[in-house]
């Protein structure tokens, strides 16, 4: 026995949410050959298939690329601070990929570790994540190499599985998801399944065990010398979470803003003295991969990567976690025999 919903009813449901003032985000065609997760204006804006992975990730609905932490106004000797209104509206992300949804519990660790980030947490509370299991993958997908897969439920409140005849099986994973879908589905005999995901690209257990002792390995330079030093990987990554805090304004007032930042920029670690502890691009790439597969896991237990493939997919020199780890595994295994 299962619960199902027709594609038409699902769209009507999205329409109903929008009418009720709920903000709904989902995969949307934003240019001729570009699909992005974006706010939807109408239910028909939502794509539920026909693409592998949107060019961004759902993190921006929880940790936006730019947000104001507070406003300040300077009048004479007085400085007035104003906090932003707390987020009141309810939100739904629909059509998330499993590799995007899985990033949310990973990000929860970071935003609730020494400091509980009220902005992030508020958005997490207000948002329900409805995930669409994957039927296709491309060369860049490697969810299966990091313990996830095309039907991984981690981080999702509801899972949708495509069925024949424009139907979806609905599996509610959390109470939040159950509440969202209550009374919206029909009982059926059909159950959804997905074809196997991408073949494994590297041996995670081996790499986790080995990477900590490979800080000086020549593979970092060999595999990453071509890095262009942009932020395309970090900014399309569902799990990268670095930010910078800057004041924007003039002598009369302005805002204190939290903006995305990326470890591949030379400026990221540049000291005021002019010294840069990560002075070359391979050192910065090593940091990105080590953070994901050594530093973060040592602290929180999980790897900081869901295998979505966006870093390689959007890299102008075809470089990402996958290409670096493949090269690393090959080089380290050869070195030990």
């Amino acid at each position: 026995m299962s619960e199902v919903i027709s594609a038409r009813a699902l769209r009507e449901l999205i329409g109903g949410w929008l009418k009720a003032g709920i903000r709904v985000a989902g995969p949307r065609r934003v240019a001729t050959d570009q699909v992005a997760y974006a706010w939807l204006d109408r239910p028909e804006d939502c794509l539920l298939g026909g693409y592998i992975h949107p060019h961004n990730s759902i993190k921006e609905f929880f940790f936006p690329r730019h947000e104001s932490l507070y406003e300040y106004r300077i009048e004479g000797k007085k400085i007035a601070l104003k906090n932003p209104e707390p987020l009141a509206d309810e939100r739904i992300v629909i059509g998330a990929r499993p590799c995007d949804a899985a990033a949310m519990p990973i990000l929860d660790h970071v935003f609730n570790w020494d400091f509980k980030d009220p902005f992030y947490n508020r958005r997490r509370e207000q948002t329900t994540v409805v995930t669409l299991a994957c039927r296709e993958h491309d060369h860049e997908c490697f969810c299966t190499s990091v313990g996830l897969g095309p039907d991984a439920e981690r981080g999702s409140d509801v899972m949708l599985y495509e069925l024949d005849g424009d139907m979806y099986e609905v599996r509610c994973v959390t109470d939040k998801g159950g509440n969202l879908m209550a009374g919206r589905t029909e009982t059926s005999q059909l159950t959804g399944s997905v074809p196997p995901g991408p073949a494994k690209k590297f041996d995670l257990a081996y790499l986790r065990e080995t990477i900590g002792s490979k800080f000086e390995s020549p593979v970092w330079t060999e595999a990453t010398l071509r890095c262009m030093a942009c932020g395309a990987c970090a900014y399309t990554c569902p799990t990268c979470h670095c930010f910078d805090i800057v004041d924007e304004g003039n002598a009369r007032g302005g805002i204190r803003a939290k903006n995305w930042d990326a470890c591949q920029f030379p400026m990221f670690t540049l000291h005021a003295s002019g010294h840069n502890p990560r002075n070359t691009q391979p050192q910065r790439q090593r940091q990105r991969v080590m953070h994901k597969f050594s530093i973060y896991p040592d602290k929180f237990g999980d790897v900081l990567c869901t295998g979505c493939g966006n870093c390689t997919r959007h890299c102008s020199v075809h470089l990402g976690v996958q290409t670096v780890l493949e090269a690393a595994e090959k080089s380290w295994r050869n070195a030990t025999v």
Binding site: A36, A229, A232, A234, W260
Partner: peptide
């Protein structure tokens, strides 16, 4: 509309 999607990754500059 187009630039509302720009994330300031500076890939355009870096390449």
């Amino acid at each position: 509309q187009e630039l509302s999607r720009c994330v300031k990754c500076y890939a355009c500059r870096q390449v």
